[in-house]
Amino acid sequence: MFRFKLLAWVLIAFGLVVALASSPMLDAPLELMADLVFWPVDGGPHVTTPAERLLAGISGGLMLGWGVTVMVLAGGGAMPTAMLRGGVAWFVVDSIGSAVAGAPLNIALNTGFLALFLYAGWPRRAA
Score class of each variant (00 low, 15 high):
126 A>H: 13
32 L>D: 11
124 R>N: 10
10 V>G: 12
11 L>S: 00
92 V>W: 03
18 V>F: 04
92 V>Q: 03
72 V>R: 00
81 T>Y: 02
43 G>C: 11
73 L>F: 09
58 I>F: 01
39 W>V: 12
71 M>W: 04
82 A>S: 04
59 S>T: 11
70 V>T: 05
76 G>L: 07
58 I>P: 00
62 L>N: 04
5 K>P: 01
62 L>P: 01
76 G>W: 11
66 W>N: 05
73 L>N: 01
62 L>D: 06
39 W>L: 09
100 V>G: 04
21 A>Y: 02
52 E>S: 14
20 L>V: 09
2 F>A: 12
71 M>Q: 02
47 V>S: 08
4 F>R: 12
89 A>S: 07
51 A>K: 12
44 G>H: 09
34 A>F: 13
64 L>F: 10
27 D>F: 10
14 F>C: 10
65 G>C: 03
53 R>W: 06
96 I>N: 06
1 M>W: 10
13 A>Y: 14
5 K>T: 06
78 A>K: 12
24 P>M: 14
53 R>C: 07
81 T>E: 05
76 G>M: 10
105 L>H: 06
15 G>S: 10
63 M>P: 05
86 G>D: 03
33 M>I: 15
9 W>L: 15
66 W>T: 14
86 G>Y: 01
121 G>I: 02
75 G>H: 07
45 P>R: 11
84 L>V: 05
25 M>R: 13
94 D>I: 06
95 S>G: 11
43 G>M: 08
9 W>F: 12
103 A>K: 02
92 V>R: 03
18 V>I: 14
94 D>V: 08
124 R>H: 11
33 M>W: 11
33 M>A: 15
109 L>R: 08
33 M>C: 06
42 D>T: 10
97 G>T: 03
113 F>V: 15
116 L>I: 15
